[in-house]
Design a protein around this nucleic acid. Structure first.
Lengths: 196, 196
DNA sequence: GGTGATATGTTGTCATCAGCTACATATGCC
DNA sequence: GGCATATGTAGCTGATGACAACATATCACC
């Protein structure tokens, strides 16, 4: 909030401030409302100042995405010691708790340059999942099962956020129950077979 | 192609033509490039003509989404007699074959009005999945397992399209193999338990 | 303490877009 | 033939992304 009471010509740390307010705008209005000019307004600087720190709008979105993946990864790692079920709950808690940020992270508007960093960050997610599924053979099996778990939870999160699983399920206890039921139907088996 | 050689003042079926060219634009350049003006240009009419048929840009996107779900539903129903594995393959073939359209269908920019119709159309997908998983108890179990299958495939499709599962996997035989391996690790069991 | 290079922020500008309003033209019904 | 309605057109407004020229602060160096 030092934004409007800024005394000096220079902001101090405009880059960080832009990322911060970008997160605010995103959470409030969605990706479409996150414009560089709006971020500049909220930061209390001119409409063109953000270009000193971000090449274009995509670059700012990329930074917000990256921070999102970092937060998600941290949340999962924190939940990991408590077991796979807790990791799954932490994943969905993040997705349902920060819906717009979560959508942005997986949005395909990702330019190639933007993706490079994101893919690396996302590997943390995969690794935590792979390590959370016990009783599998080798590392390759674990990686496959981790991928399946990641896909299942990501798909569930998106379907919930889209309202495809019922209007009430997008937030709250309904979602919690639904997720428990659905995830409870799934097993991971090392021996490949013709399941669907 | 009757667009430029149009003789009469009135277009004839501008609405259908707009939806058609919108699909073209979408497949070529992604959702961001799909503007009403661009659709109008391609249809050979003035930039404001589309407003006679669509309230705004969202309405056009909604129509394209709806057609996408209809196509997907039809593809799944066609594959259903061949069993669950074929349904899964058909699902992923659609997603990887029409990536931008697929992303649009699940994009959360969906306004509430837009969603209503989409949710109904998407129920077809869920139903086909639920019916494709044999050996489960009641209808409720089937619905849960169908939801899990839908989420798994949707998540896989998105992760593939995003390039999170490897740069080569987004299209072609690599994806096919990866999907077979990952899906092969998953079982559906009627008795709920602590899986993750 | 002075001086200049560099980073950072500002003002001004342009092209493009969504959406709106007033107007023109075609079509069908009487 | 004449009129009501559906449909297409031209022009406008406000907002945005992106860029260029300019202004100011900060810091290194002497």
């Amino acid at each position: 909030m030092a934004t409007s009471s800024r005394q000096s010509y220079h902001h101090g740390d405009l880059r960080a401030e832009l990322v911060r307010v970008a997160g605010e705008v995103l959470d409030q209005g969605g990706q479409a409302t996150l414009t560089l000019r709006e971020a500049a307004r909220r930061a209390g600087v001119s409409h063109s100042a953000p270009y000193r720190h971000f090449a274009d709008r995509e670059a700012l979105l990329a930074e917000v995405s990256a921070q999102g993946f970092a937060q998600l990864g941290a949340a999962l790692r924190q939940a990991a010691p408590a077991g796979g079920v807790e990791v799954a709950r932490a994943y969905l808690r993040f997705a349902l708790g920060h819906p717009r940020r979560y959508r942005l992270m997986y949005a395909d508007e990702n330019s190639l340059a933007r993706r490079a960093g994101l893919v690396d960050l996302a590997q943390v997610v995969l690794r935590v999942f792979a390590e959370s599924i016990p009783g599998l053979g080798g590392a390759e099996q674990a990686r496959r099962a981790g991928t399946a778990a990641w896909a299942l939870l990501h798909g569930l999160a998106e379907l919930l956020l889209d309202g495809f699983l019922g209007p009430l399920a997008a937030d709250g206890a309904d979602a919690e129950r639904l997720v428990r039921e659905v995830v409870g139907m799934v097993r991971f088996a090392a021996r490949p077979a013709a399941a669907a």
